[in-house]
Simulated assay, not measured.
Amino acid sequence: MNTIQEVGADRLLFSADYPFEDMREAADWFDRLEINDNDHIKIARTNAQALLKI
């Protein structure tokens, strides 16, 4: 939450440090975050799409 407040959801990407962290555990943690749907979608998908131009 501090990172979102400091830099904004438009500048964040979801990631996991595979193979050192379990991707399922990281995804479950991210899915449980109490952030609004718009920010969740940005961090999970649309920010990466914009950055990678896909």
Rank of each mutant, 00 (worst) to 15 (best):
Met1Val: 13
Met1Ile: 13
Met1Asn: 12
Asn2Pro: 04
Asn2Asp: 09
Asn2Val: 08
Thr3Asn: 11
Ile4Tyr: 00
Ile4Phe: 00
Ile4Gly: 00
Ile4Lys: 00
Gln5Val: 08
Glu6Thr: 15
Val7Thr: 09
Val7His: 03
Gly8Ser: 05
Gly8Gln: 05
Gly8Asp: 04
Ala9Gly: 00
Ala9Ser: 09
Asp10Gly: 08
Asp10Arg: 08
Arg11Glu: 06
Arg11Tyr: 09
Arg11Met: 07
Arg11Leu: 09
Leu12Glu: 03
Leu12Phe: 08
Leu13Gly: 05
Leu13Thr: 07
Phe14Leu: 06
Phe14Asn: 00
Phe14Ala: 01
Ser15Cys: 10
Ala16Val: 14
Ala16His: 04
Ala16Gly: 02
Ala16Lys: 02
Asp17Gln: 00
Tyr18Asn: 02
Tyr18Pro: 00
Tyr18Glu: 01
Tyr18Leu: 01
Tyr18Ser: 02
Pro19Asn: 03
Phe20Glu: 02
Phe20Asn: 03
Glu21Gly: 02
Glu21Met: 07
Glu21Ile: 11
Glu21Asn: 04
Glu21Asp: 03
Asp22Arg: 07
Asp22Leu: 05
Asp22Val: 07
Met23Cys: 07
Met23Ala: 11
Met23His: 11
Arg24His: 15
Arg24Phe: 14
Glu25Met: 13
Glu25Ala: 13
Glu25Tyr: 09
Glu25Asp: 13
Glu25Pro: 03
Glu25Phe: 09
Glu25Val: 12
Ala26Val: 14
Ala26His: 06
Ala26Leu: 06
Ala26Asn: 05
Ala26Tyr: 02
Ala26Phe: 03
Ala27Pro: 04
Ala27Ile: 14
Ala27Ser: 11
Ala27Arg: 11
Asp28Ile: 07
Asp28Arg: 09
Trp29Arg: 15
Trp29Asp: 13
Phe30Tyr: 07
Phe30Trp: 06
Asp31Tyr: 11
Asp31Gly: 12
Asp31Pro: 03
Arg32Glu: 14
Arg32Phe: 09
Leu33Asp: 04
Leu33Phe: 07
Leu33His: 06
Leu33Trp: 10
Leu33Glu: 05
Glu34Phe: 05
Ile35Cys: 00
Ile35Trp: 00
Asn36Arg: 08
Asn36Trp: 04
Asn36Leu: 05
Asn36Ile: 09
Asp37Met: 06
Asp37Glu: 10
Asp37Trp: 04
Asn38Gln: 13
Asn38Phe: 13
Asp39Thr: 07
Asp39Ala: 04
Asp39Phe: 04
His40Lys: 15
His40Leu: 08
His40Pro: 01
His40Val: 08
Ile41Leu: 13
Lys42Leu: 07
Lys42Phe: 03
Ile43Gln: 00
Ile43Lys: 00
Ala44Ser: 14
Ala44His: 11
Ala44Leu: 15
Arg45Cys: 10
Arg45Thr: 11
Arg45Gly: 10
Thr46Glu: 04
Thr46Leu: 04
Thr46Val: 06
Thr46Asp: 03
Asn47Met: 07
Gln49Tyr: 10
Gln49Glu: 15
Ala50Asp: 12
Ala50Ile: 13
Ala50Phe: 10
Leu51Thr: 02
Leu51Asp: 01
Leu52Gln: 01
Lys53Phe: 11
Lys53Trp: 07
Lys53Asp: 14
Lys53Gln: 15
Ile54Asp: 10
Ile54Trp: 08
Ile54Tyr: 06
